[in-house]
Design a protein around this nucleic acid. Sequence first.
DNA 1: TCGATTTGACCGTA
DNA 2: TACGGTCAAATCGA
Length: 367
Amino acid sequence: MGTCIWPENLSKRLMKELVQGRDMATQLQILLHKPFGEHGSVSAEELTRKILNSFTETLSVVMRYNNSTVNSTSNTNTINGNISDQFSGGGGGDQVSQVNPCEEASHCDDRNSEDSGESKRRSLFKDRRGCYKRRKNSQSRTTVSPTTEDGQAWRKYGQKEILNAQYPRAYFRCTRKYDQGCRATRQVQQIQDNPKLYQTTYIGEHTCNIMVKAPQMIKDSETWNCISNFKVITSDSSRIIPNTSSSKAPTILMEQGEVVKEETPISDSLSDSLSLGNTEDLWPPELKDLELSEPSMGLLMSQKIMGSNHNGHDQDVVSIMFSFDHQDRTCTSASTTSHGLDMEVFVDKSMDFGNCDFEFDETEFTL
DNA sequence: TCGATTTGACCGTA
DNA sequence: TACGGTCAAATCGA
């Protein structure tokens, strides 16, 4: 359970890095509202690199400290080495739900031994009082898509009528929840204003070995080439998720220079939209008025901002979505923030690249 | 037979 | 206490 206390020097360093990152993000935000050339000497590319470096440095400090504390406490919950769990498990409800004796012990004791299916379980849980712990402050991300399919295996476990909502919300969990302990869930709900679209909220990350079929993810080679020069940071900022079907193995930098290959597929939201070849689907309805003309790609960048409470309370997830239009040479951005399960969408505006070649060089993002 | 879905009930959180 | 997330019995379908 995340009861680690940050040493003062670490805390100061983290604060410094986070403040720097915030300031640079602010500059970038201002920059994104201006065409190139109207700003100072710092380019968006340079700022982006600095921001990434700043957060990466912060995260490496956190990881080093977390690993040292995790190792010393021999927490078996991180046995899979899933960094995302270590991070999201920084505390708060998520951590509670991960190691909650009820959910993770009593339920898992029963469900991990799922030998003959659920019928066996039913008789064991007549009294469900205190039998589960609701997740709180879990990492989440929301996508909007005309389909609920995302290439992953989900099992519906519930449906609820939501107050003031025209359509019910369906609840899905990963089919590998019990045999592999995967904690990923998602909620799907038709959008009231546009029933053809589904808003899907993904909660938690897959820790199972289900892989997205690569050919489904990218169909447009041009898009793919473009994407290959990006790394996508999910709401779990410790995980850099680039293309998975590329020959380039996605990597994240670990402490002591260790390079770990990340098998996690590209984020659902991205793969979903990319598989459709329509990045417009990435955008929440609030952004529909942007009217992008077939943007060639979409990029979702998210960053979990650790609050002052190291237990994970007051964590915010900031997601910045970019859409690049090769024809119009514009970049449109939007950002979302989520606190727990609450999400706000902020629409930023488009910028025109004009004749400027806007290319992201992966080497610029090397951490 | 077994996995998936439906649906009412239970339970935690705000 | 209302709302919403999850559970699990009943049911369906391959």
